[in-house]
């Protein structure tokens, strides 16, 4: 129990809290990495995922790609990029972007695939153009699964952003590596508590968001009816917890 108190005392000490190398600044860096990497990854992955989901082409490649990346050790990738790009924020950012892509891609195409084929046929039958089918039917109905992808992507990135400290990229991991080097368990524990708290808060926010983005029409007619079954086999995307990290 004394160990825990040491960690909490470290967090509460104003000397560790403020200033450019205090934990508040480091926490903001961690958030910056998280949202920066997820935003960049989203620009790449979401249109690609939508294209896969809409046309049904390239799904096997997307699945294999997501699965293969799971086994890639992020620390090794980070250090390799560190050699190429030097120390600083670039190498961690690039590593995190790569890490953020698979869940986003899976969320985007699984969202499209989950839409009942009859709903899409109906949309075409009432004269919607292909673009309208995508924009007015598939995107809104696929939104909950896409947010699920964003959620697991954020969760994975916020955890891994801790590694940035290893190559001088800042963020909360700085304290963990510094603590490990100087045998300062309080510092390691304090930073660990902060990283965990940050991850839990983000997870909570996204869980809430995921509930809020279900389109009103879907709620009104009962979620089961509109998107319960798809005639296409569903992608093995898994809920946010099933993604590796």
């Amino acid at each position: 129990m004394n160990l825990v108190l040491g960690g909490i005392a470290w967090i509460l000490d104003p000397a560790n809290m403020n200033g450019p190398s205090g934990w508040i600044a480091r926490l903001l860096e961690q958030l910056g990495y998280t949202f920066g990497a997820v935003a960049i990854a989203a620009i790449v992955a979401i249109p690609l995922g939508y294209a896969v989901g809409h046309t049904g082409r390239g799904r096997d490649i997307a699945v294999a790609f997501s699965g293969g990346l799971r086994a890639l050790p992020s620390l090794g990738v980070l250090i390799l990029f560190g050699f190429a790009l030097g120390i600083g924020f670039k190498a961690p950012m690039l590593t995190l972007v790569i890490l953020a892509i698979p869940p986003l891609l899976a969320g985007a195409y699984a969202g499209f695939e989950a839409v009942d084929r009859r709903t899409i046929d109906a949309a075409r039958a009432v004269g919607m153009t292909e673009l309208q089918v995508v924009g007015k039917v598939e995107v809104p109905l696929g939104l909950p699964l896409l947010i699920g992808g964003v959620r697991s992507s954020v969760l994975q990135v916020v955890a891994t952003a801790t590694l940035a400290g290893y190559i001088g990229g800042g963020a909360l991991g700085t304290f963990i590596f510094q603590g490990a080097a100087t045998r300062n368990y309080d510092m390691m524990l304090g930073a660990s508590i902060l990283v965990t708290a940050l991850a839990l808060v983000l997870e909570g926010i996204f869980a809430l968001l995921q509930k809020l983005v279900v389109p009103r029409g879907v709620v009104a007619t009962g979620q089961q009816n509109v998107r319960a079954r798809s005639s296409r086999s569903r992608a093995v995307m898994g809920s946010p917890i099933q993604e590796g990290k």
Binding site: S192, V195, L200
Partner: peptide
């Protein structure tokens, strides 16, 4: 949800 490095340390 608990990130891996903190979990090792806990």
């Amino acid at each position: 949800t608990v990130p891996s490095i903190p979990l090792f340390i806990f």
